[in-house]
């Protein structure tokens, strides 16, 4: 399956990681998203911005297969996601997507290292050496044995980013990753994303932070659930 995909990818290098066709999501009478269409090629760094309530989180939930659209189509790596069972969606999440949350969401009773290993375990097998290397990568090799409560917000977010990377996902999705951080940590985390981008990873990031808008190579603005601008 993955072999077939990568083969196709090598034949058609322009195939997008994400392709949205008229995507919509309504909650009862509230239309959180409507007629959203865009494509994100491999290796892109896209910032999604917009006022509060414009549908950014709703969009990210759809992209991460945590939610289902009520209209339109979403293709991930060229595969339509409509009609997938919950188990298939879970498989997509563990194999292709790395998630970074505003509230970090680490498991409180596991150490930083164990939090990474849990994600590895869900994906395939836990590998302490690889997990440790990933922590080194975000500059936290020396805090591997610490629990989240013993880490600062910035450190927790770096663990969260390391976790999002650990299984080599084709797509990294982040919802306001610096929303709960002070300026110093914000810079550290932003640098980390910049670095990931340079390594050629595909990143879609929701942010209120104009600085991120500068870093990203493309900014999609939402307003009232529609794409307002895409540059």
């Amino acid at each position: 399956m993955t072999a077939a995909v990568s083969l196709r990818a090598s034949v058609e290098p322009a195939r997008p990681v994400i392709e949205l066709r008229g995507l919509g999501r309504s909650f009862g009478t509230v239309e959180a998203l409507r007629e959203v269409s865009f494509a994100i090629p491999s290796g892109a760094f896209v910032a999604i911005m917009g006022p509060s309530g414009s549908g950014k989180t709703t969009l990210l939930n759809l992209l991460s297969c945590l939610d289902r659209p009520t209209a339109g189509e979403y293709l991930l790596d060229g595969i339509p996601t409509a009609g997938m069972s919950e188990a298939e969606q879970a498989r997509i999440r563990r194999e292709r997507i790395g998630l970074v949350f505003q509230q970090f969401h680490l498991i409180p009773y596991l150490t930083a290292l164990e939090n990474l290993m849990l994600a590895q375990h869900y994906h395939s097998v836990a590998d302490a050496a690889a997990a440790r290397a990933a922590l080194e990568r975000v500059g936290l090799g020396h805090r591997a044995g610490h629990r989240p409560s013993q880490l600062s917000g910035g450190e927790q977010q770096r663990v969260c980013i390391a976790r999002a990377l650990i299984n080599e996902p084709s797509l990294i999705l982040a919802d306001e990753p610096t929303g709960n951080l002070d300026e110093a940590n914000e810079t550290v985390v932003m640098d980390l994303f910049r670095q990931l981008h340079r390594e050629g990873r595909t990143i879609v990031l929701v942010t209120h932070n104009p600085a991120f808008g500068e870093v990203a190579e493309r900014t999609i603005r939402l307003a009232h659930g529609r794409v307002e601008s895409d540059r």
Binding site: S64, L66, A90, I92, R94, L99, H105, P108, A119, Y122
Partner: peptide
Amino acid sequence: AREIGLMKALGARLAE
């Protein structure tokens, strides 16, 4: 609940 939601978001199988 948060922890369970996280496990699901990380792609854990329900059985797990």
